[in-house]
């Protein structure tokens, strides 16, 4: 097997200027192999390394006993989720349809349809549950929607410009004008092999399924994120598109950024190598392993994991 992060490392060096949101923090060298997390060089400050005692990356997301229900009906969907993600890690969640994967990501970003009824969520040590959705986004959390909606009347370009300027305002930077922004965004459009015309169109209006997914990744590549939650970015994408998207995602990965992807397919996991694979069932993470867990499911289905150790 090739070193899991070979793609990522190459992509980072070729396209690192794309990713700007965490450039203020020191760049660490990515650990070359999944299994070698523990031997990762520690360049971190004493405080930080004290926080992350045995394992490598700093804690990014800590979810404990998270329960959540649909606001309108009170129907409980998440039934005690535990999940820990550290900087530089790639996680994948798999699980049957309806097991609560999308709900988990939506709850993490504060979707108004759901109510957290118990448990804790810490993001970079801060209580996420108390934060507005836009604050979570500005704190470095990004979710690509499984089914991105249309916003009629708002052009993709204006949408991205508003989003980038919200970020710049928070960082105390002057707002970008429409012209300045063009050079930034056109590079990203090109990198994703999208039609430049897509910028003039209204957000997702009349977009094909694949175009919508790519558009989500375009937003990610323009805005950057410390933790990207990618909900089935592989569904609806053709083979070539999947590679473009995976390349872009890998390009965003640095030792500080993490990705949590939801997928049903091995193909994506071959392109973006996960350090951890979780299995979700009835609103809980019931099993965690490395990428071999995914191949196991791929071969034997979910019923086979009961016997898988």
């Amino acid at each position: 097997m090739a070193p899991p992060f070979a793609v990522a490392v190459a992509a980072v060096s070729s396209s690192s200027p794309l990713f700007s949101s965490s450039s203020s923090r020191p760049i660490l060298r990515r650990h070359p192999l999944l299994g070698s997390i523990s031997v990762r060089p520690r360049h971190r400050s004493a405080v930080a390394s004290a926080a992350a005692t045995e394992s490598a990356g700093k804690l990014l997301l800590e979810v404990h006993g998270l329960t959540a229900s649909v606001k309108e009906t009170g129907q409980q969907i998440l039934k005690g989720v535990d999940l820990t993600i550290r900087e530089g890690e790639v996680h994948a969640i798999m699980g049957k349809n309806g097991s609560g994967k999308s709900t988990l990501t939506k709850v993490l970003v504060g979707h108004p349809h759901y109510e957290v009824t118990g448990g804790t969520i810490l993001f970079k040590g801060e209580n996420l549950i108390d934060m507005e959705p836009e604050e979570r986004s500005l704190a470095g959390l990004f979710m690509s929607f499984q089914a991105p909606i249309e916003i009629p009347g708002v052009s993709n370009y204006d949408f991205l410009l508003m989003a980038i300027n919200a970020r710049r305002e928070k960082d105390g930077l002057p707002a970008l004008g429409p012209l300045e922004f063009y050079s930034v965004v056109s590079q990203k459009v090109e990198a994703l092999k999208m039609e430049p015309k897509i910028l003039d169109r209204n957000v997702n209006e009349g977009f094909s399924g694949g175009e919508r997914k790519r558009n989500e990744i375009l937003q990610l590549s323009v805005l950057g994120a410390d933790l990207a939650l990618l909900d089935e970015i592989d569904s609806g994408l053709d083979v070539d598109a999947l590679e473009d998207v995976a390349h872009a995602v890998n390009g965003l990965l640095t030792p500080q950024n993490s990705v949590l992807m939801i997928t049903h397919y091995q193909r994506l996991l071959d392109l973006i190598k996960p350090s951890y694979v979780h299995i979700m069932e009835s609103g809980k993470i019931v099993k965690t392993g490395d990428s071999s867990l995914a191949s196991h499911i791929n071969e034997g289905g979910y019923k086979s994991i009961a016997s898988f150790v």
Binding site: P133, I151, A166, L223
Partner: peptide, 11 residues
């Protein structure tokens, strides 16, 4: 639609 904006950092 509002949430889509918020999810991208726009209040």
């Amino acid at each position: 639609e509002l949430f889509y904006f918020q999810a991208r950092g726009v209040d």
